[in-house]
Simulated scan of single mutants.
Amino acid sequence: MCVFLQAATNNKATTMTKAFMTGTQRYGVPSRVRSDHGLENTGVGAFMIAHRGPRRGSFITGRSVHNQRIERMWRDLFASATSVFHSLFTYLEESGQLDLANPVHMWCLHHVFVPRVQRALHIFREGWNLHRLSGERGRTPTQLYIEGMMRQAGQGHRGIDDMVFRAPEEAIQDHDEYGIDDEVEVAPREDMIINVSNVDCPLNEQDFTRLEQTLNIESDQQGVDCFLSSAEFAILCCDQDMINMKLCTCM
């Protein structure tokens, strides 16, 4: 079951936590969450430990080499949705139309394509949750989720019982069932930290309003023309602001 897929322009813990909480509003808070050592997951880890309790595997970090379904989902996600954008961005960069070192280009890329990527992720998630699984006698992930909720209610599973009634605290009976090598701290190791920073809007409020009024980012299905037009507009505005700044300095 794919609970959420969220496109973001940074990997801050607050961004990840907000997306996670959106998923819990629809499907409930899980009993346990397993993640890698990414710094963006610390907010989710803190929430899970506070909500479900410590020393019970509420938040498990580390590699999971046996989760074949998630690996299959990532492969299908790339093939069905994100590979299109990967190829498109590669083309723009190799053709000299996109400069990854130019913050104006990067902001325009986010402005035009993040909504498109998010729509693709939404379509994929809806399709994934409704696709039939051969190993589950043709049932879909959504059907398995509902059947599991109905079957396991009252059996001491926190993530399920909390959506029906309050259940007593339970301990992990079989660590192998959850793929736990060892329970580690929420904070990631130094060598695991990857920082993806936001790109600030290069336009002032007036110029941004003009951009919104003159350019319909939905008018171009693939978004290339919208990106090139917005980049040209933003660069002209930035150049004009620089000229005005120099004139004010001289005066």
Rank of each mutant, 00 (worst) to 15 (best):
residue 148 G to H: 05
residue 124 F to L: 02
residue 11 N to K: 15
residue 7 A to M: 08
residue 162 D to T: 09
residue 131 H to L: 01
residue 130 L to Y: 07
residue 219 S to V: 04
residue 53 G to W: 04
residue 175 H to G: 02
residue 73 M to V: 07
residue 128 W to A: 07
residue 213 Q to V: 04
residue 99 D to Y: 08
residue 204 N to W: 10
residue 113 F to G: 04
residue 154 G to I: 13
residue 205 E to H: 10
residue 140 T to E: 06
residue 41 N to P: 01
residue 45 G to P: 03
residue 54 P to G: 03
residue 57 G to C: 02
residue 151 R to P: 00
residue 26 R to T: 09
residue 137 R to T: 12
residue 80 S to F: 12
residue 246 K to V: 12
residue 38 G to A: 13
residue 1 M to P: 02
residue 120 A to F: 02
residue 75 R to K: 14
residue 87 S to Y: 11
residue 3 V to D: 03
residue 165 F to E: 15
residue 116 R to T: 06
residue 69 R to P: 00
residue 248 C to L: 15
residue 120 A to Y: 04
residue 182 D to Y: 03
residue 166 R to H: 11
residue 71 E to H: 08
residue 79 A to Q: 13
residue 196 V to E: 11
residue 251 M to T: 13
residue 217 I to Q: 03
residue 51 H to L: 03
residue 117 V to M: 14
residue 233 F to C: 05
residue 113 F to W: 06
residue 23 G to T: 08
residue 53 G to E: 05
residue 99 D to M: 05
residue 40 E to W: 04
residue 216 N to E: 10
residue 85 F to N: 02
residue 202 P to G: 09
residue 62 G to M: 00
residue 82 T to L: 15
residue 138 G to I: 10
residue 178 Y to L: 14
residue 141 P to M: 03
residue 62 G to T: 07
residue 230 S to Q: 03
residue 122 H to Q: 14
residue 122 H to V: 13
residue 38 G to Y: 10
residue 224 V to W: 01
residue 164 V to M: 09
residue 68 Q to K: 11
residue 177 E to R: 12
residue 197 S to D: 14
residue 152 Q to R: 13
residue 48 M to A: 01
residue 70 I to L: 11
residue 105 H to P: 04
residue 244 N to W: 08
residue 87 S to A: 15
residue 210 R to H: 10
residue 37 H to R: 15
residue 173 Q to H: 08
residue 56 R to M: 07
residue 26 R to Y: 06
residue 15 T to Q: 06
residue 203 L to C: 04
residue 56 R to P: 00
residue 48 M to R: 03
residue 3 V to I: 14
residue 52 R to S: 08
residue 186 V to L: 00
residue 216 N to H: 04
residue 116 R to L: 09
residue 110 H to Y: 09
residue 49 I to R: 12
residue 9 T to D: 13
